[in-house]
Simulated scan of single mutants.
Amino acid sequence: MGFLYLCALLISIGGMITLDRRFRLFVFAGVPWRAIAVLVTGVVFFLVWDLFGIGLGVFFRGETAFMTGLVIAPELPVEEVFFLLLLCYLTMVVFCAARRMLAARLPRTRAGERA
Rank of each mutant, 00 (worst) to 15 (best):
S12R: 04
L19E: 15
P107D: 07
F82R: 06
E75C: 12
I11K: 03
R21C: 06
L84K: 08
P107M: 11
I54E: 09
T64Y: 05
L76R: 05
I17S: 10
I17C: 02
L84R: 10
L90A: 09
R99E: 13
A8P: 03
V44K: 04
R99A: 15
V31H: 15
G112M: 01
V27I: 14
F23K: 12
R22H: 04
F52P: 00
G55P: 00
V78F: 13
R99K: 04
G69I: 01
R34D: 04
L90W: 05
W33F: 15
R34E: 09
T18R: 00
W33L: 13
A8V: 05
R108V: 14
A8E: 01
F26A: 01
V44Q: 11
A97H: 14
R61F: 06
Y89D: 02
W49G: 01
R108M: 14
L90R: 00
T91H: 07
V48F: 01
V44W: 02
R114I: 07
E63Y: 08
A37C: 09
T18I: 07
V78I: 15
G62K: 03
R108Y: 03
Y5F: 15
G15V: 08
R114K: 05
E80L: 08
F59P: 06
V43M: 08
V43A: 11
G30K: 06
G30N: 11
R34N: 07
G15P: 03
L56R: 14
M101R: 12
F82I: 04
V27C: 02
P74R: 15
V78N: 01
L47S: 09
G53T: 07
A104F: 11
D20V: 01
R61H: 13
D20N: 13
G69A: 11
V58N: 05
L10T: 00
E79T: 04
G112H: 12
I17L: 14
V94P: 01
V40M: 12
L76I: 00
A37P: 04
E63R: 10
W49Q: 03
G42S: 05
R114W: 14
G53M: 14
G2P: 02
